[in-house]
Structure formats: C-alpha cells, structure tokens
Design a protein around this nucleic acid. Sequence first.
RNA 1: GGCCCUAUCGUCUAACGGUUAGGACAUCGGCUUUUCAAGCCGGUAAUCAGAGUUCGAUUCUCUGUAGGGUCACCA
Length: 442
Amino acid sequence: MNTTKVITRFAPSPTGYLHAGNYRTALFSYMYARQKGGKFILRIEDTDKERSKKEYEDNIIDSLKWLGLTYDDFCRQSDRTLLYGTYIQKLLDSGNAYISKEIPKEPGDRSEVIRFKNPNKKVKFTDLIRGDIEFDTTDLGDFVIARSMTEPVFHLVVVIDDALSEITHIIRGEDHISNTPRHILIYEALGLMAPHYAHIPLLLSPDRTKMSKRKGALPITEYRKMGYLPEAVINYLAFLGWNPGGERELYNVEELIKLFDLNQVQKSAAIFNIEKLNWFNKEYIKLLPQETLFKYVSETLAPHNYNSEILRKITPLIVERISRFGELEDMVKNNELQYFFNCPVIKKELLAWKTENDFQKIKERLITVSDILKTVPESDYTKDKIKEALWPFAEKEGRGAVLWPLRVSLSGQEKSPDPFTLIEIFGKEETIIRLENTIKLL
RNA sequence: GGCCCUAUCGUCUAACGGUUAGGACAUCGGCUUUUCAAGCCGGUAAUCAGAGUUCGAUUCUCUGUAGGGUCACCA
C-alpha cells in the first residue's frame, strides 16, 4: 500500500519566453497532481546566471496565472546555492565526483570543473508513458555537474531539488529522456530513490521540428493578447497528445483533471495547429453570457471610443463572426464596424443587384420600402415584424432586387448582417434617414 | 554519425487480434429561400514498407524506411 502523496513540478528556466509546448507539460503535471490530490510545485531553474532574466520569470508566473495553473509551492534555484554546495562536497568526499583540470574551449569556461565519476553501467528505468528504456551510460563519460562549488549545473540541481521536494512524478518533455540516465546515476551516488518518470511527446512546429522562438513559436501570453480564452487554450493543449476516448472534445478543467490518465498519453509528437485552437476558442466564446461578451468586446475596442450603447447592441452580431477577440481589430480595419455608428457613404454602383442595374427602378423600390417602413410603428421595429412588413413587396419585385439595395443603403458594405437585423438595431428614425440619403443619391 | 524515442486521413486523434478503420479541425459540395457570418446535411481523405506469429492483424515480433530528440562548463 503506497500512501505517498503525489508531488509534481514544473521546472522551467527563465532564459526566454515559454511557448505552448512548455505550458502543455505544465498542464499535464498540474492535472496529474490535482487528480491525485497531491501538490504541484513551480521551480525556477535559474542556475545559468548569464541567460536568466527576471522578466522571463515574471512572464512564466503571469502565464501560469492566466491559464489558471495554480501551484502550491514555489522555489528558485539561485536562492539555494549554498545547499547545493554541501551536496557537491558529499559527492567529492564519497569519490563519486572529482575536480577536473580543463582546457577552456569557450569564453567563460573554467580551467577547473567538477565532474561526476561515471560508473559506466547500464541504467534502466520505466517510463510511465513509454515503458522500459535502457541506456548504456558509458557513452556519457564523466559529465560536468558543477563549474565550481557555488556554480552547480542542471543535472545536479535537478536531482537535488526533486529529491528534497520529494517529487514523486517527473512529468517533462521527451527531450529530457536522454538526460534521465545521468540523473538516475546521481540519485544512486547520493543514495536517493529516483522518482517516477513520464516523458511526454514534444510539441512540434508545423515544419515538424521542435518548437522554438526562432520558428515563430509565440509566448503563451501572446495568445491572451490575441484574444484567446484561457479555458479554450487549456482544453486544446490538454488534447494535444492525450484524449479521454469517445467523441466529446469540450471539457472544462475540472473534467479534464478527473479524466486525465498518463497511460492514455500519446507516444508520438504532435503538431501545433492554430486552426483547431481557433475552433476551440470559438466554441468557448459561444458559451459566454452576453454581459461577458460585451465586456470583452468593449475592452478590445476601447481605443476606438465607440458609442457603448450601440456596441452593446451589436455585440452578438459581431461576436459570431470572430473566433478570437483580436479579430475585432481586423473588422475595424476592414471597415466592417464603422457603419453601425455613423451613416455610411454609399457607392452608387454597389446598389445594383446582379444584372438589375436600372438605378431609376432601384430608386423607386427604395422609396416604396421607405414608405412601408414609415407606416410601421416604432415599437414594431424588430427583426421579425420588419420582415413581415417588407416581405410581400420583396416577393413581388424579387427578393434580391429589393433586399440587396436596402441592405447596402443601410450598411454601405458588400457584406453585412441581413437588412432586417440592421433595421432592428438602427431603429425607425436612423433607418429612414439612411434610406433617404441613398434615395437622394439616385 | 553514436545513442534514444516514434510511426492511423493534410492536422489532432478513436479502435488496446475480428469494425464498411470512427470523430474533430481544415478542405470541397449542397441546403438554409439577398450578401457575408453562423447553422444544418453530405463528399474527398489514413493504418510507412516487407517478413513473420495467428483461423484472422492498425493492434504482437523482427527487419528496413522515414521523422524527431539528444550528444555543452544551457536547461
């Protein structure tokens, strides 16, 4: 009976902005810990003083918070230098490590480093996702574990920290598989028990190579800026390399945590596909209540100072056209919003419907439409009632011949929501004004 | 190149010896009776190859091939 509490960790190094792949491994660790009622720890691996930046650390914390991946403990390796020193000494004393004279190869290289005395044996471990994996560590040589007593290197600190935090399951990227035998060797030298390992497949760029900034992998915070919803990102990331079986795809975090299973994690790498993310995001947008949607829309469009009363009215209309809120900016650029707030400038040619380009006729029809609309009481300016009022005339003249010029008169655009919807939004007065403007033009 | 991992539609995946190989995204077509969007319906599309094991292999084994990872005084 194993009563050990599960403890997992996310251990990024703050040497750059982390991308979706990194946060997916964080998510898997997080889900596993939460499901088992265990702990999830964030550890900042900043032993590389030259490359580590506070800015990146802040971004990691910020991103995790946005995604809702809360951690129960936090530590930073640069705060623990002294501690590592005692372990280096221990390894030196036990003969498992030695000080080695070196010929510096690169600027910054020391002439003396501490190397691990490799026993040159076969190391076998059971990966929770891939099964048994065996390495001959002879190929590894006596690898460096510290540049000096106060400058330990990754392989050493990882082991010490994981052991000290009593990490039970190391869930990390597949790129660490080949590091695992080194770590196991250090565990053994220190007389410590190695944890369980689960190496999850890599997330690849569309060109099928490891994701990297160079190839356009974005920091996850960029997705927030582009107007993606964190719950959509979580759902999408969780489904990259794992799924609970069945055909359902939309799950909230609690459900994902409940269903998550390391045994079902895919062994092969996955390619990050923005189209699918967009679909997830759209699905999550549809789930949002009107008030929340309006909040997102008005926040995104704040710089344009649009009339907020009108904005509130058109929110459902414009939201169904986007899959992320950042696309609202594109709508502004494409002039798809302006006509809701100001009378549009009508291009005469646009009023012609297909082959129907007799402008005299178009004018007469618009006048009739306008007359009909004038008879409709203001309180009946709803989509359905307006349609009811206009339909007989549209049927008689040809729907396109009537409805197209009407819609263009109201929007000035080649494409827009249907005229009935527009009339409901504009109301009687504005509708009549716009129609008369167009009629004057003809 | 050595070592390690992997291999189902273009992409994410389901099927853990017996299915017309299923779903989703993307794509294409149709319908929603003006455009666009949304929605609905339908189509195209996959088991890397070759040997085994088996009555039967996407599934198990081996080989090949392909892809990826890793070989730092980075993590």
